[in-house]
Design a protein around this nucleic acid. Structure first.
Length: 515
RNA sequence: GCCUCUCUAGCUCAAUGGUAGAGCAGUGGACUUUUAAUCCAUUGGUUCUGGGUUCGAGCCCCAGGGGAGGCACCA
C-alpha cells in the first residue's frame, strides 16, 4: 500500500500504463498483455490464482503407469495432473502442450471437440510459464507420445513475466545466479546439481543414523571465535549489548556435547567465513561435523570413506566420478600419506617440524614460499606442502600427520611429539574434509590456546580466542574422541562434476543488483 | 585488493567507425496427431552508466558499475 505521503504517488505516469504504452512486445508490453488476461478472467468470475488443486498423479506416476502403452491407444483411465506449461504447439483445433512438474514432463493433447469452444479459447490464451491443473485421460498419439487428453484445463497460476528462451535456456551466469528461479525453470543441469546435493545430504543422514549418530543444532552466534583458522563476520546484539561472531566452525560446541555424554553427534552446519569469493569459496557454506566418543582418527577416516562413497552411490548410482578427465572409483581404498612426506618429496629435502627453523626457512626461500617471521617449522612445512603437492592430488587421498603448530585442537601423534593424529582429505586438489583424534587434555589444550594467543598478538588476525568455557568443559572430562568435518558444498561439486561452488549453492553470495 | 575477459530486444545471439539485425517468445492469420511443430504477416532497442575522440561511436579512448576466470586471501 502506498501512503498518501509517498513522493511517487502523485505523478504516476508509468504506474498505470497507458494503452499506447502497451503496444508492441517489449517486456513491459508483454506483462501488460498478460495482466490484461488476468483482469479479463476476474471480470468473468474466474480466479487466475485459485487456492488449490487435487492432483491424483505426478507426471512420473503417469509415465510409470502407462509408459508401456502402444502408439495410438486411447484409454479411459482418468488422471489429474498439474504442472507448468513449457511448450505449446497450436495446430488449429488441436493444441499440444508440454507441462512439467518436479517429477518429469508430459504432453497434453487438447482437442477442441473434447473441451468445447469456450474452454479451448481460454486454453489458447495460456502462456508458456503458466501453471495448470488438468483432468483428463491417458492416451498415446499415433507417433507413440504418451499424453494426457484433457477434459478440463484449469489455470492454477498466471505467469506475468515471460520465461527465458525455450530452446537455449538461460546462459548468462549473472542472471542464472541472481534469478535462480529462472535458472531452475529452464536449465536441467541446475535442477540436477541441486538434486545431487540433496541426495548427498540425505545419504549422510542415513549413514550417520545407521552408526548411531544424533543430529544436533548448536549456536550460529558465537561469543568467541574458535574451531578453525579464519576471519569471522562480526555482529552485535542490541539488548545484550555484546559483540557476537557468526560461527566459523561448530567443533567446540559439538565437543562440549561429547563431554556431556552424547557420545556420537553431528551437525550439518551453515558456516560463515569472512574471506574472498572464488570458484571454491562462498562466504557462507555448509559443513558436516561429527564427533565419535571412544574413537580416534582411524575410525574417522573409515567413516569418511563410507559417508562419501555411499553418498556417491545414492546420488549418482555409481561410485565412479570423473576428476579432470580421469575416471576415479571412490570405492577403491584411499591412500594415506603424511604431509611431511609430501613436502619432503616436493622439495627434495627431508623435512620435519623438529628441525631447526633456519633450515626450513632456507627450503622455503628456495621454493619461493613467503614466510612470516612468527611462523614455526610446522607452519612453513604446511606452506611447502600446499605449494609443491596439494594441487597434484587428484584421487581421494588422506594427507596425515599435520604439525602440532597448525593443529591446536588435535591430539599429538602417539608416535611423534611434533605431529598430530590429523588428516585432511584431498580430491582434485581441493580440501574436502578434515579430522583428527581430538585433544582432550584440558591442561595441554590451555597451553595450545595460549600459543595461539601469542600468534594473535604477533599479528595473526585469523587466530581464535581463548575459550575459557571450552576449557572448563574439558575439565569435566572428555572421552577419547575422533572428530571430522566434511565440506558439503565441495563434495556436491565433486559428485555433480562442476567447477564452481556457485553451481551447488542455490543463492550464492553476490553483490546487490543495481537497477 | 590486483590482472584479463565480458555486458546489444524478455531470452539466445549478429552487426569493417557509416540507417542496430536474426531466431525464440509476443501479436494477427492458416492448420485435428504435433515433438524446439510448420507456413504467411508483424510489434518490440537508454547497445550497462557517464564523459571523450570523430563529420559520424554498439564498435576507439577514459572513468564508473555488474558478472566470469585467474592471482592474492583462504586449516
Amino acid at each position: 500500500m502506498s501512503e498518501p505521503t509517498d513522493p511517487h504517488s502523485d505523478d504516476t505516469p508509468d504506474v498505470v500504463a497507458a494503452p499506447e504504452a502497451a503496444a508492441g512486445s517489449g517486456l513491459a508490453a508483454e506483462k501488460e498483455r498478460r495482466l490484461g488476461l488476468v483482469e479479463a478472467m476476474r471480470e468473468s468470475g474466474d480466479n487466475p490464482y485459485p487456492y488449490r488443486f487435487d492432483r491424483t498423479h505426478t507426471l512420473a506416476d503417469v509415465r510409470s503407469g502407462w509408459g508401456h502403452l502402444e502408439p495410438g491407444i486411447e484409454t479411459e483411465d482418468p488422471v489429474s495432473v498439474a504442472g507448468r506449461i513449457m511448450l505449446k504447439r497450436d495446430s488449429g483445433k488441436l493444441i499440444f502442450a508440454t507441462i512439467r512438474d518436479r517429477s518429469g514432463e508430459i504432453q497434453l493433447f487438447i482437442s477442441k471437440a473434447v473441451v468445447g469452444d469456450d474452454e479451448f479459447a481460454a486454453i489458447k490464451d495460456l502462456d508458456l510459464g503458466d501453471w495448470v491443473g488438468v483432468n483428463g485421460t491417458v492416451m498415446t498419439t499415433r507417433k507413440g507420445e504418451l499424453s494426457v487428453k484433457p477434459d478440463h484445463v484449469e489455470l492454477l497460476s498466471k505467469a506475468i513475466r515471460p520465461m527465458p528462451d525455450k530452446w537455449h535456456g538461460l546462459t548468462d551466469v549473472d542472471t542464472r545466479f541472481r534469478q535462480r528461479y529462472a535458472d531452475l525453470i529452464v536449465n536441467e543441469d541446475a535442477r540436477r546439481n541441486f538434486e545431487i546435493r540433496h541426495e548427498t545430504v540425505a545419504s549422510f543422514r542415513r549413514t550417520l543414523a545407521k552408526h548411531g549418530f544424533i543430529e544436533v543444532e548448536t549456536p550460529v552466534l558465537h561469543p568467541e571465535v574458535g574451531g578453525a583458522h579464519a576471519r569471522p563476520f562480526t555482529t552485535h546484539h542490541n539488548t545484550l549489548d555484546m559483540q557476537l561472531y557468526l560461527r566459523i566452525a561448530v567443533e567446540l560446541y559439538l565437543k562440549r556435547l561429547i563431554v556431556g555424554g552424547m557420545e556420537r553427534v553431528y551437525e550439518i552446519a551453515r558456516t560463515f567465513r569472512n574471506e574472498g569469493v572464488s570458484t571454491r569459496h562462498n562466504p557462507e557454506f555448509t559443513m558436516m561435523e561429527l564427533y565419535q566418543a571412544f574413537g580416534d582418527w582411524n575410525d574417522v577416516m573409515d567413516i569418511t570413506e563410507e559417508l562419501i562413497t555411499t553418498a556417491a552411490q545414492d546420488a549418482l548410482g555409481t561410485t565412479v566420478v570423473e576428476v579432470r578427465g580421469e575416471q576415479v572409483d571412490l570405492a577403491d581404498a584411499w591412500p594415506r600419506k603424511r604431509m611431511i612426506d609430501y613436502a619432503s618429496e616436493g622439495t627434495g629435502v627431508e623435512l620435519h617440524p623438529s628441525m631447526p627453523i633456519s633450515d626450513v626457512r632456507k627450503v622455503a626461500a628456495n621454493h619461493d614460499v613467503f614466510v612470516e617471521d612468527r611462523w614455526g617449522a610446522g607452519k612453513i612445512i604446511e606452506e611447502l606442502f600446499e605449494k609443491t603437492a596439494e594441487s597434484s592430488i587428484i584421487r581421494p587421498t588422506f594427507v596425515t600427520g599435520h604439525p602440532v603448530e597448525i593443529s591446536p585442537l588435535a591430539r599429538v601423534d602417539r608416535n611423534d611429539p611434533f605431529l598430530t593424529e590429523r588428516f585432511e582429505l584431498f580430491v582434485d586438489g581441493r580440501e574436502l574434509a578434515n579430522g583428527y583424534s581430538e585433544l582432550n587434555d584440558p591442561v595441554e589444550q590451555r597451553a595450545r590456546f595460549e600459543d595461539e594467543q601469542a600468534a594473535k598478538a604477533a599479528g595473526d588476525d585469523e587466530a581464535g580466542s581463548l575459550d575459557e568455557d571450552y576449557i572448563r568443559a574439558l575439565e569435566y572430562g572428555m572421552p577419547p574422541t575422533g572428530g571430522l568435518g566434511i565440506g558439503i558444498d565441495r563434495l556436491a561439486m565433486l559428485l555433480a562434476g562442476v567447477d564452481s561452488i556457485k553451481e551447488v549453492i542455490l543463492f550464492p553470495t553476490l553483490r546487490p543488483e543495481v537497477h
